[in-house]
Amino acid sequence: MDFVSRLQNVDRRIIYILLILVTAVPMISPLNLPLSISPGTTEFFNIVDALEPGDTVLFSLDYAPSGAPDVHPIAAAVMEHLMDKGVNVVSVSFWDAGPMFGEQLMRHYEELGYEYGVHFANLGFVPGQETAIKRFGENVGTVSRDFRGNPVSSLPIMEGIKDTRDFALVIDFVAGNPGIQEWVRQVQGSLGITLLAGSSTVNVPQTMPFVDSGQVKAMLAGLRGAAEYELVMGKPGASVAKMDAQSLGHIVIILFIVVGNIAFFLDKKR
């Protein structure tokens, strides 16, 4: 087999091992590449930063383990900012896996002395997809008991909250449908809530028209968005640490495309 044929038919396992190496090594020994902040992240940060202590924000946790490594870090970064500012967080989910991520977030702050029901609460999962989003959006009382089994009316954090307009902000952390499209269609359009998105990277292109039209006020995009948010907050954490690996991952895939095309053209010329 000559060079061009060999280049055309590289064993896929070599591609896999290369990808593992270029992403795993910089995770173990980071290169500390500088990271710039995109305008969208600054806008998101400013909206959240303008909240007053005692305000309450709704998190809609619409992701599952399949997208969690890309979306959960955004929720964690924003949660950190809100807890720092003394803003309360109520979470709800229209994906059945969502409440478990809500618990992950809240358990961490419970260990730090924050109080469940006062600083945050997890309303759990509401089945029914788009219909459930509409129903919950117009009447938060749709959920009678939280994820831990407490009557929602007994939680101090829920005092005075009837519909989603009573939250200072609604942030949808989302990896697909139901998610931001349904929130825009069923709640934002009719109630005019202030809606923000923490979107998985894959969903960013589809969500852009909503950001451009102002239906979604600002968006954090995937793991990179989380890393930028950590930097703006002044608390670089796990997401920032992964950015070097992300960089090299991109570079190696671009190289794969380039080498694959060189092989293709050499073969065509022959």
């Binding site: 795993a24 995770m27 997208g67 990277t201 292109p205 995937g222 990179r224 992300q246």
Partner: peptide
């Protein structure tokens, strides 16, 4: 643009997996 975002998203998922294996389990991070 969508393909570029798909690549970024999938690599993020891979990094999440590595965090569990290299960090939580092996304690390398």
């Amino acid at each position: 643009v969508s393909f570029g975002n798909v690549v970024m998203g999938r690599i993020s998922l891979l990094l999440g997996a590595f965090e569990t294996i290299l960090g939580n389990w092996l304690g390398l991070l």
